[in-house]
Design a protein around this nucleic acid. Structure first.
Length: 260
DNA sequence: ATGGTGGATAGTCCA
């Protein structure tokens, strides 16, 4: 089973990119973030034509998450969750579904704007509530994958210039501690099971030719529970769609699991 | 240079 995560930064704009990439990469499951679409406007037909079914939790203009599953796997979505228990939040940032016995939790983590901003405080609070939710999910579902745009670079290897980034938002110690606490539930960064080096990024700012100069961050993650960690056969960042015309500022990340 | 690029939307907000 090949699982992917991609922040598309507007699914309306990126439908051609997504369908091209689905045809090229043939993932079984794809978690999307920043769809920026109300559910009534979700491109169900275009994705069905591409061979994928979807569940989605969207809103106008901002946020929005979706999970796609390839139709020819014959798998259905079960136990769909669109809200964090105990967090009354109109922002559509979480979507969980079970597909073929694998529990998939798609996250679009709060950006936080800047350390000290009220959005930063909301980010840390949101991550606390997510951790509590995941603590329950990991008990309920041994085959757990938690993936998405975490808006946190796990450590300095994941940052193109850690000195200038310093302790700014996306790199600050409290954010990294919140991610570490989530990992300590028993979730493993799939990319780091296979690659220890620096210079591997999943997001590059649109400005100042950041992609061309590889000035990026690795903030899109696929975390695997212990059971799925044992099944992992590879993990990758596919930089190709970032080179295309009118790209998302994020590129897809993938993991290959030796199951089914 | 307090900028810069891009999306949604229609004067800004968000990333």
């Amino acid at each position: 089973m090949k699982i992917a995560s991609w922040n598309v930064n507007s699914l309306k704009v990126r439908i051609p990119h997504l369908t091209q990439w689905l045809a090229d990469a043939r993932p079984d499951v794809v978690a999307l973030q920043e769809t920026k679409l109300e559910d009534t406007k979700f491109p169900v037909d275009e994705l069905a034509a591409a061979g994928y079914q979807a569940v989605y939790a969207g809103q106008k203009t901002y946020n929005g998450v979706a999970i796609l599953a390839r139709n020819d796997t014959g798998l259905a979505f079960e136990d769909v969750v669109t809200d964090i228990p105990g967090l009354d939040d109109p922002q559509r940032r979480i979507l969980a579904a079970t597909i073929g016995g694998v529990r998939v939790v798609d996250l679009y983590v709060v950006n936080g704007k800047a350390v000290g901003d009220e959005k930063y405080a909301y980010k840390l609070h949101w991550l606390e509530r997510v951790k509590d939710f995941l603590a329950e999910e990991i008990q309920r579902h041994p085959k757990l994958v938690v993936l998405g745009d975490f808006n946190i670079a796990p450590d300095d290897r994941d940052v193109y210039d850690p000195v200038s980034w310093g302790e700014e938002v996306l790199c600050s110690p409290p954010e990294r501690a919140a991610l570490k606490a989530i990992k300590e539930l028993g979730l493993h960064d799939s990319f780091r099971l296979f690659e220890q080096g620096d210079g591997h990024y999943s997001w590059w700012d649109y400005r100042q030719g950041a992609f061309r100069r590889n000035m990026g961050l690795r903030i899109d993650l696929i975390l695997l529970g212990d059971t799925l960690k044992s099944s992992a056969r590879g993990a990758a960042i596919d930089r190709e769609p970032r080179r295309w015309e009118r790209p998302s500022d994020h590129t897809p990340v993938t993991v290959d699991l030796d199951i089914d």
